[in-house]
Nucleic acid binder design. Structure first.
Lengths: 347, 347
DNA sequence: CTTGGCACTCGCTGACCGAGAGTGCCAGAC
DNA sequence: GTCTGGCACTCTCGGTCAGCGAGTGCCAAG
């Protein structure tokens, strides 16, 4: 009894089941795949596979269905990531290159992934934990208010309005604003968020009594923004695809939609990538720690500019999914997005 | 045969049906509501209501269910918008007041609406068609690049990076940037988008030959941003609530989710408010022009800072919904959001 | 105009049954 | 030792049928 053939049988079962979405029996199997043995032999192999927990029969006299463990083996040992056609590659890059800013890149990416894989797409906003401050701009506004614009190296922009409690429109005020602007940029520009935050706090103490309240207001708002922005965001698309795959979710579409609205847990999920961030990570069914998503699989990959993986993206679908092509799409999109971010990075 | 009583019966049917989600029969009706007449009388009234097309029997021997027209009459003539409890009002305002910026206001609003009504919430971003430019800031970046930050009176911020093709780091460059900054703010600050766009174009012609290319680059990017931002956006939450109401959607949850992903059509829907923008607008089932949403009702209302209604928000749910309380929630939220925007407006 | 009565309609439920698909196992072939 | 054909068995699925119950429409009387 060759182990090899048993795995061939498993692969055939997975492929057929993904294709037909019906339990596959021994007879149908030998017909569709030419594995040079008879149905009876296949049945023996199936019995063993079932013993190993890789497949499972929904009821005594039905065909077999892969278990989560079965899919796992399939993904790890039995499938190669299918390369995309050159047409697809071109379509992807063209679609993404039309983006005008970061929001647009993320928006286009998530839509693209959803329509490409016909599943739910999930894209995490580039995380700012490793981001650096590019520039901080101050814009006086009204009599005593100041708008603070924080520009991040990824191209993201955050703004806050603070009340300095001082008139800013006279000469004194203008001098103050300009001095604060210079000083905070001196300590914070080009510096990672975490470092910037501590340096800015120190700056307050070094400031003259007279200007300290104004400086304090600005720094505290900036501190907020730095922390606030570290709170990560995620964008979804293609929820309708869940309904299309209704057969795979016996009445459990509700919990899935609910889980998808819990952006925090989604982010945690996306954060737990596999060992190698350059590889596509697949989490199958019950491997998934989130309640409600245990009938789904998540195919994800990190992306980011330069060598850093600043965030992840992926798709979520029924465990019965076409892993090779889904993985190919996710990988291709992740790479293109990284490229795009690289290009914009330099500017 | 009093017309009054017939309407009472209609109201009772709507209320019961919304409550139980089962066709309501004459007997159950007289038991639950004390309408001082017998079941037989109610049956006669029901027959008439059916003739008028306000209710409908799913099959010969079942109870009655309101039609879209029936709900229409109910909403227009038989129900008063139920006032919210003071606790609810307080919860709403507290939840919304924690918002730090416009994104956050919109985000909180949509979540709040969804959880309040337990339905799908839809919030349109404040439209920028009537917005004005508050300030334009230029930030030199790298050798010849310039980041343009456009600040809108609603608090929204847009940024673009352009290549001016000229060195900006020397004294000449700084002078150029500062001159451009002053001049564009002179013509555009405080001015509505449409006007700003034309004035800015004129500005290019009035610029010296030497500085013209740089000015042109800035103005063209700004023009893009102004148009781009006019493209409106919409945010959703609570899709999971659709699944909860599964009984109301015989297998048609897919088309609804699909329709919800068509943000363009959603925006068009939200745009078509009723006559009085200060009133809650209700679009019931087939009154709704969008394919896929014809088993749903949309309860919406405009909101915005000052007297202008710059955008709308609302919730979408099954036609079998509790209109009075839903309308109350939508109205309350719309008002609070308007207030919040008003407050931030002044700063 | 209302009411009680009554015959009628129709969907829902559960039981039953036959067909079909698939399995497990065994005995024999290679 | 491994593979294969055969066979009895199991279980789901779809269809049919009867009984039940809710609800209706209509009618004749109050």
């Amino acid at each position: 009894m060759s182990e090899d053939r048993r795995l061939m049988v498993l692969r055939a079962i997975v492929q057929d089941y993904v294709h037909t979405s019906e339990p596959v029996g021994s007879k149908a199997l030998v017909e569709r795949h030419h594995l040079g043995v008879s149905a009876a032999t296949v049945r023996n192999d199936m019995a063993l596979l079932e013993e190993e927990g890789l497949i499972h029969a929904p009821h005594t006299s039905a065909g077999r269905v892969p278990t989560d463990a079965g899919y796992r083996v399939f993904v790890d040992r039995l499938s190669a990531v299918k390369p995309l056609s050159s047409g697809e590659r071109r379509a992807i890059s063209q679609f993404l290159e039309g983006a005008v800013d970061l929001d647009d890149v993320v928006d286009r990416t998530v839509r693209l992934l959803a329509s490409l894989t016909r599943q739910v797409a999930v894209v995490q906003y580039p995380s700012l934990t490793r981001s650096t401050v590019r520039h901080i701009e101050l814009v006086p506004m009204g009599s005593s208010h100041l708008m603070i614009v924080l520009i991040v190296n990824t191209g993201r922009v955050e703004q806050r309005v603070v009340d300095t409690g001082r008139a800013l429109s006279d000469a004194d005020g203008e001098a103050l604003v300009s001095s604060i602007r210079t000083r905070i940029n001196e300590v914070a520009a080009g510096v990672p968020f975490t470092v910037a935050a501590t340096r800015l706090r120190r700056l307050v103490d070094e400031t003259d009594e007279t200007d300290r309240t104004a400086m304090k207001a600005v720094v505290s708002a900036l501190g907020d923004a730095l922390v606030e922005e570290r709170e990560e965001r995620v964008v979804l698309a293609g929820q309708a695809n869940l309904a299309r795959a209704g057969a795979d979710f016996p009445r459990t579409i509700g919990p899935i939609l609910e889980a998808l609205e819990e952006h925090v847990t989604l982010l945690r999920l996306l954060g737990q990538l596999g060992d190698d961030p350059d590889l596509v990570s697949v989490r199958i069914g019950s491997e998934n720690p989130v309640t409600g998503l245990q009938t789904t699989s998540l195919v994800s990959m990190g992306y980011g500019s330069g060598s850093e993986r600043v965030a992840s993206l992926g798709v979520l679908g029924p465990t019965r999914m076409d892993y090779p092509t889904t993985m190919a799409s996710v990988r291709a999109v992740a790479r293109y997005v990284s490229e795009i971010l690289d290009d914009n990075q330099g500017t």
